[in-house]
Design a protein around this nucleic acid. Sequence first.
RNA 1: GGGGGAAUUCCAGAGCGGUCAAAUGGGGCAGACUGUAAAUCUGUUGUCACUGACUUCGGUGGUUCGAAUCCACCUUCCCCCA
Length: 314
Amino acid sequence: MAEKIICVVGPTACGKTTLGVLLAKRLGGEVVSADSMQIYRGMTIGTAAPTASEMDGVPHHMIAVADPEESWSAARYAQTAIPIVDDILRRGKRPILVGGTGLWLDAVVQGREFAGGAAGGQVRRELQARLEAEGIGPLLEELRQVDPAAAARLHPADEKRILRALEVYRETGETITAHNEKTRNLPPRYDAVWIGLRFADRADLRQLIDRRVDAMVEAGLLEEVRTLLDRGLPRDATALQAIGYKEFLGVLEGEITVDQAVAEVKLRSRQYAKRQLTWLRRNPDIHWIEWEKERDFGRALQLSTEILRTHGLG
RNA sequence: GGGGGAAUUCCAGAGCGGUCAAAUGGGGCAGACUGUAAAUCUGUUGUCACUGACUUCGGUGGUUCGAAUCCACCUUCCCCCA
C-alpha cells in the first residue's frame, strides 16, 4: 500500500505556499517544493520563493538547492525528491508537496519513470544540429520509420518532442511510445491527497498577480537578475527561462524599459497561470478550494482539514 | 487660414471593385504535454437555426450587376505650410 502524502497545487499566486505551511504545522509535516524555478539559488524574489519567516519553522525541501547554471529536469527532480519524501515518511512526518510545476508533481507521485537520454547529451546535440541544418522534415520522417505511432501523434511543428522521441529510441533502442505504454499504468508511487487552490473568478487572480509583480520589482527583482549575471550565469541558462528573469534581463541589456518589462511579466504570468490550470484540470483527484475575491486561509485550512480527514489524514 | 494623409473585426495592421467575415501578428478562449515544463506545441476567435444564412470595415448619401475597396459631403485624428 502506497504511503499517503499531500499535494497542494494551483496556479501561480494562489496561495500554495501559505496553505502548505499551515497544513504542515497542523499535521507535523514537511514541505517538499515542486517548483521548477524555486529550485535554483539566488532567485527568491522573482520566483516568490518562501522566506524564512514565511516558512515559519516548517522544514522546506527542494528550494534553492541548485546552482542556477545547472539545468534541472523533471526526471532529475524526481530522482532527488523521492528519497526526500521517503525519508520524511520514515521519520513519521507527513510530506506535503507544494508546487506549480505539474509535470514535476506527477513525476514524483506517479509510478512512471522517464525514458533515457537527456537534454545536454551527445545524441540530443546531434539531433539539434541536424534540425538546424535540415529542418524538421527528415527527422520526422526518420521517426516515422522507427516509431510511427509517435510520428502520427506529434504535431509536425512540435520539434522538441520529435527530437526527444528520436533521442529515446537512439539512446535506449526502445521507442518512446513503447516506453510510455509500459510505464503509463504502473501504480502510483504514493497515495496522494490533492488539494487545489484557485479563484472562482480569474480576474481576481489577475489582480493578485499584478500586485505581486509590482511587489517583486519593489523588492529588487532587477538587482536579483543583475546579481545572477554578475556571477557569470549564461543567458541561455534554464533558470533564466523563468518569467520575470528573462524580461528583466532585457531591461539590463537596454532592450526594454522597466515599465515594459513589468507589463510583460504580468502578461506572461497570467498566461502561465492559465496553462497551469489547463494541466491541473485533467487531474480528477484534485479537491478544489475556490477563493471568492480574497484569499481566506482560515477557511482554506478548515476545508483542507476536512478533505484530509475523509482520506484518513488529520 | 492653406495643403496633404488617415479612419478596418478586442489591439496593431494588411486589403484598394467581385475569389472578403476580411491576410498577418498580438491578446483572449480552449487544448496538448513524461529528462529545458515559469519551457514547448496545437486549435479557435462577428452572429446564428453554422457544408448555409445574416450583420460588419468612422457616418450619411451616391456610382455599379456587385464596394472595406470608387465619388460627394460630414465627423474625428495626424502631418506640413501659415
